[in-house]
């Protein structure tokens, strides 16, 4: 019989439940690495390309796969869980106990944030060991950019849940946000290979900015104030929207 604090018990319980969802586990924890490995198996992607300023496609796809992991955790996996908890009265039941239902939401955010980071770590490790992709040179800058990107993704997922009354609507809204997110993260065409004008536009999106910041730090620089600012603004705005529109029941 445990005597740990409610927040810890809630987090541990939610982590266990997360472990019972094999599909979510695959998409969040493994699919980004699978994507990287598949691309890495194509020989021409392992050769330096002039279009990418002498870098290889696989080098560019490490940060892309990292962002893919964030999108999977924050936008695909989390919103349906949160809206189901609301729709099925789980939050309501909890609000009649001394523990606030916000504890459950916090646990979910922590859980999906952590799994996104772990999945990113796996991508970076496999990129390094499997395909010789250099580790980020500016580790502090990279960590800063990554953490801000995670915060931005989770707040986007929370906002999706806040504006959706039901689980079905959350899935639809999540899907509508999913494709632009994948595009701006550079999953189909890396941001660095996009035409200039398009690149300028994409940089204003959360994942376009994240892509810029990760790319800058991977090659040793600091993330630009512009991309950090864009992510921070999105995060603040999306948190504001979530708080404003979220309904407990």
């Amino acid at each position: 019989m445990s005597t740990s604090s409610p927040a810890v018990t809630v987090l541990r319980t939610e982590a266990r439940l997360f472990g019972r969802e094999p599909a979510a586990l695959f998409w969040v924890m493994l699919s980004p690495t699978v994507l990287l490995v598949i691309l890495g198996l194509i020989p021409s992607f392992r050769e330096a390309s002039d279009d990418l300023g002498g870098r290889r496609v696989i080098d560019v796809y490490v940060p892309v796969s990292v962002l893919f992991a964030l999108i999977m955790a924050g936008l695909q996996a989390m919103p349906p869980v949160l809206s189901a908890y609301r729709e099925r009265g789980i939050l309501r039941r909890m609000s009649t106990t001394p523990v606030r239902p916000g504890t459950l939401l916090t646990a979910q955010l922590t859980l999906h944030g952590t799994s996104a980071l772990l999945s990113s770590l796996l991508v970076i490790t496999v990129g390094r060991l499997g395909f010789g992709v250099a580790l980020p040179v500016n580790l502090v800058g990279y960590a800063l950019a990554l953490l801000l990107a995670v915060a931005c993704t989770l707040s986007l997922g929370a906002a999706v849940c806040a504006v959706s009354r039901t689980q079905k609507i959350a899935a639809a809204v999540g899907g509508a946000v999913f494709f632009p997110s994948m595009f701006t993260a550079g999953v189909w065409v890396p941001v660095q290979s996009m035409p200039d004008t398009l690149q300028r536009i994409v940089e204003f999106s959360p994942f376009g900015a994240a892509s810029e910041a990760l790319d800058a730090t991977a090659s040793g620089g600091w993330p630009g104030w512009f991309s950090l600012g864009v992510m921070a603004l999105w995060t603040v705005a999306l948190i504001g929207a979530s708080v404003r529109w979220f309904r407990w029941e």
């Binding site: 319980t13 439940l17 019972r20 969802e21 908890y85 099925r88 009265g89 789980i90 309501r92 039941r93 009649t96």
Partner: peptide, 10 residues
């Protein structure tokens, strides 16, 4: 409560 549920896999 009259109508509420718990996490399905709990």
């Amino acid at each position: 409560l009259q109508e509420s549920e718990l996490q399905a896999k709990l």
